[in-house]
Design a protein around this nucleic acid. Structure first.
Length: 817
DNA sequence: AGCACGCCGACT
DNA sequence: GTCGGCGTGCTC
């Protein structure tokens, strides 16, 4: 029985379902290796694995007569995450039908994974290169290897065609080439810096040169300093200090330091007095902290002071010796929330988001792991922060679609945040001005406690929203369709008052629908089923899905004419048109094109704050959380763009986007005005946005959802089938659909409980040369739905055949296109 | 993911 | 007849 304790459950970092049992080598204690990476023999090679804990099926494998292999190496000195997170990872793996090793790999900071690769080289001992002259491909392989060792795939790339494994093996057998295994990766290391430690005093210095004197001055009040900092004052510090070390005056030592992801410093703030509503919300969360797992939906008008509530709640959790997890949408990080938390909590904050380099990310991870950081502020992946004792989870802007990851492990950060709170038995606060239908439904049914903020700070009034019916100008030509008299008048009044205007248009580029003037064909992407967008600044047509680019001077592919009409309005054209109407105004644009370079987004926001911009034109980027004090006019140029999406959440997303954009107006002490232009003035999403009333939107929307059996009255799972060959995609989709229907027919009770839609060609039938099909499963009982999905997905988990079709599972899908 | 095994067409 | 292509299945 003694050996059974030394059997460990290991998840390998490969797309393989299930976990494996390995034996711990002598010299390690089973408890000591939990949550560390190990190198394990797996099939013919060795791979990275994660130790989940003691093996659960003790003895069963041996009873089967299976060999249990020994762990080859333990790769970490300490745990990468608290072992208490293992159930969290397992749950995610089950729910999203994703291998647990891949789940952990997704959770960990990148750059930690090792893998083994096989390097080929010429076998020098193999004698003369064949009595029979090597022919064809063999000769090419030898010539290539003579230039340097490489792996088989690299060899194929260099020769322009794949080199078959069998050929390599036969050449190996002939003694021409040799194969060796090499470990690669896992190279992101903690950063170290040189520190100087004062041992003696200036009086002991026998050679007080000028440089030394200055160093002594600096070191007078710090017993220890970073050499890099000293070099900035005394350029020769490095060599001078070395000599001082030889004289026994100081000691130089290398120490681990953290790379600093915080751009500028933030000055500490002091907590403001809470309004009555804020205090009530904080009290409710405090009592939640005593009760354990409690879910709060904090809804409140923009400018109502939700962030202050998060700050107070986090402070309470910290006082109790617990940690806090704060999730924010990706874009908001560079703005309010992160700065506010840093101002209040200083270096007890760690930051996790996509803007960090691999090294910075690893350092933040280590700070969380070590307990240096007690609060994590970050985007969706921060839900995996390696905290042991989570006392509070916050999801700001919980409705934001960026919480859903749409590749690899397709998880929803908001949902996992709630799960993490449940597993940690702590409160979770979902905050937003425009709650998701799902969260309001949970609040209605009593699972979430609703906390409402109805009044803005200092009783600032909500902006007035005026609807402009675009049908009245639809027959006008060009931009006149959208630059209505009401909008232009409003902008001109705003400029006259020296205030700022924000124009929102959810489409970037110059012309989104370039049409040939002689044959009437639209310019389409060669690889996708959508029209190209003309980007005038870049003088190029671009595909917004695959990135394909054509010169702006390209002729019509159908008839060769060079006269292309730039139809369709994008932010670039809007910016230009506004420039013509208001030649004196300073106009800027904020979209993915103008903010691609690092720092540009912050630059635009700062310019706006300093009032160096009069009119800002932008996409939904402008909707998110920024506080523009002098913006008193928001123009929503065309509210309908997101309404026509083939997605049951189109209405919800439209309402949220419009209400969020509208909330940008009048955040200072002047009242705001919003001009909302639409072709569907009567639509309830538009009407609810005008009224700034999420509950009114909800009441209408929930009726539709119930009638159609859509979430939250059911759960959805989408299978996405893609292949380069359109027939393969179709065939794989049909086959999957068949299997699905057979499975349902064969399991009692399920045919009626699970609806199958499709397989159908996706609304975007082709992206980047891949043909796309989808199969949608809708079930009222999550358990049953997931059992079916599990059976359906299992054979496809190990698989992306580049020639065949690929099947991806998306649980609770967000993007239905 | 890789690497084995196993089954069908074009060559020494 | 074998060499060499790629579909299926397994890895403690």
């Amino acid at each position: 029985m003694e050996s059974a304790h030394r059997h460990l459950e290991v998840a390998v970092a490969l797309p393989v379902h299930g976990t494996f049992t390995y034996r711990l080598p002598a010299g390690y204690s089973p408890d000591g290796v939990a949550a560390r990476r190990v190198l394990v023999p797996f099939g013919k090679r060795r791979v990275t694995g994660y130790v989940l804990g003691a093996a659960r099926d003790d003895g069963a494998l041996e009873a089967e007569g299976r060999e249990i292999k020994e762990i080859a190496d333990v790769l970490d000195d300490g745990p990468l995450f608290p072992p208490s997170m293992v159930p969290f990872f397992r749950w995610i793996s089950d729910y999203y039908h994703h291998p647990v090793g891949e789940v952990i790999r997704t959770a960990l900071p990148g750059g930690l994974n090792c893998y083994e690769r096989q390097v080929l080289s010429i076998d020098e001992a193999g004698g003369p290169e064949g009595r029979r002259d090597p022919s064809g491909l063999r000769r090419e392989v030898l010539a290539c290897l003579r230039q340097g060792d490489c792996t088989a795939p690299e060899l194929g790339k260099r020769l322009g065609r794949p080199v078959p494994e069998t050929l390599i093996r036969s050449m190996e057998a002939c003694g021409w080439i040799r194969r060796r295994r090499e470990m690669r990766g896992g190279r992101t290391r903690p950063k170290t810096a040189l520190f100087v430690q004062v041992l003696l005093s200036p009086a002991d210095d026998r050679r007080p040169t000028p440089a030394r004197r200055r160093l002594w001055d600096i070191l007078a009040d710090t017993p220890e300093a970073a050499v890099a900092d000293l070099v900035r004052v005394v350029p020769s510090a490095r060599s001078v200090l070395r000599r001082m070390e030889r004289d026994g005056l100081v000691r130089l030592a290398s120490r681990a330091v953290y790379r600093d992801p915080f751009g500028e410093t933030v000055h500490p703030d002091s907590p403001p007095e809470l309004t009555g509503e804020q205090a009530a919300a904080v009290d409710a969360i405090r009592s939640g902290l005593e009760r354990g797992f409690t879910r709060f939906l904090l809804t409140g008008v923009t400018g109502g002071g939700k962030t202050e509530i998060y700050l107070r709640a986090a402070a309470i959790a910290l006082e109790r010796g617990l940690n806090a997890l704060v999730l924010v949408p990706e874009i908001a990080l560079i703005s309010q929330t992160e700065r506010r938390f840093r101002a209040r909590f200083g270096d007890r904050i760690a930051l996790l988001h996509s803007g960090l380099s691999a090294g910075e990310r690893l350092d933040q991870w280590r700070r969380i792991r070590s307990g240096d950081a007690r609060i994590v502020v970050g985007a969706r992946s921060a839900v995996f922060a390696p905290f042991d004792r989570v006392g509070l989870v916050v999801v700001d802007e919980e409705h934001d679609p960026s919480y859903k990851q749409d590749s690899g492990l397709r998880y929803n950060g908001r949902d996992l945040a709630v799960l993490r709170a449940q597993l940690s038995q702590c409160p979770v606060v979902l905050g937003t001005a425009t709650p998701s239908v799902q969260s309001l439904f949970q609040a209605e049914s009593g699972r979430y406690i609703r906390l409402s903020i109805r009044r803005r700070i200092a009783d600032r009034r909500l902006p007035e929203i005026e609807i402009v019916d675009l049908r009245e100008t639809r027959d006008l030509r060009g931009t006149a369709k959208y630059l209505t008299p009401v909008l232009l008048e409003a902008v001109s009044e705003t400029l006259a008052r020296q205030e700022q205007a924000l124009l929102f248009l959810n489409r970037r580029g110059f012309a989104s629908y370039p049409v040939c003037s002689s044959c009437g064909q639209a310019m389409r992407c060669r690889h996708c089923d959508i029209t190209l967008t003309l980007h005038q600044n870049a003088n190029a047509y671009r595909c917004h899905y695959c990135g394909h680019t054509r010169p702006g001077s390209s002729p019509c592919p159908a008839c060769g004419s060079t006269a292309i009409w730039p139809m369709g309005l994008g932010t670039e054209k809007l910016e230009e048109a506004m420039g013509k109407h208001f030649p004196e105004a300073r106009i800027a644009r904020m979209d993915r094109d103008t903010t691609a370079a690092k720092g540009r987004l912050v630059g635009i926001l700062k310019a706006l704050k300093r009032r160096e911009i009069d009119i800002l034109v932008g996409t939904q980027m402008v909707a998110k959380g920024h506080d523009f004090r002098h913006v008193t006019l928001v123009g929503i140029v065309c509210a309908d763009l997101s309404l026509s999406f083939p997605d049951f959440r189109a209405g919800e997303r439209t309402f949220q986007l419009l209400a969020q954009v509208a909330g940008r107006a009048g955040r200072g002490d002047r009242p705001g005005r919003v001009v909302l232009q639409t072709f569907n003035p009567e639509h309830f999403s538009i009407q609810a946005a005008k009224a700034q009333d999420p509950d009114a939107f909800y009441r209408e929307e929930i009726r539709h959802r119930e009638a159609l059996g859509y979430p939250p009255f059911s759960r959805m799972v989408q299978f996405r089938i893609t292949a380069k060959d359109p027939r393969k995609a179709a065939a794989a989709a049909e086959e999957l659909g068949e299997r699905c229907r057979r499975l349902l027919a064969g399991s009692p009770g399920s045919p009626s409980a699970v609806r199958v839609l499709g397989p159908l060609e996706a609304p975007l039938a082709r992206i980047a040369g891949h043909h796309r099909w989808q199969l949608l499963l809708i079930g009222r009982r999550p358990g049953l739905l997931h059992r079916i999905v599990g059976q359906l997905a299992a054979p496809h988990q190990a698989g992306s055949d580049p020639r065949g079709a690929r099947i991806a599972v998306d649980v609770d899908p967000f993007f239905m296109m």
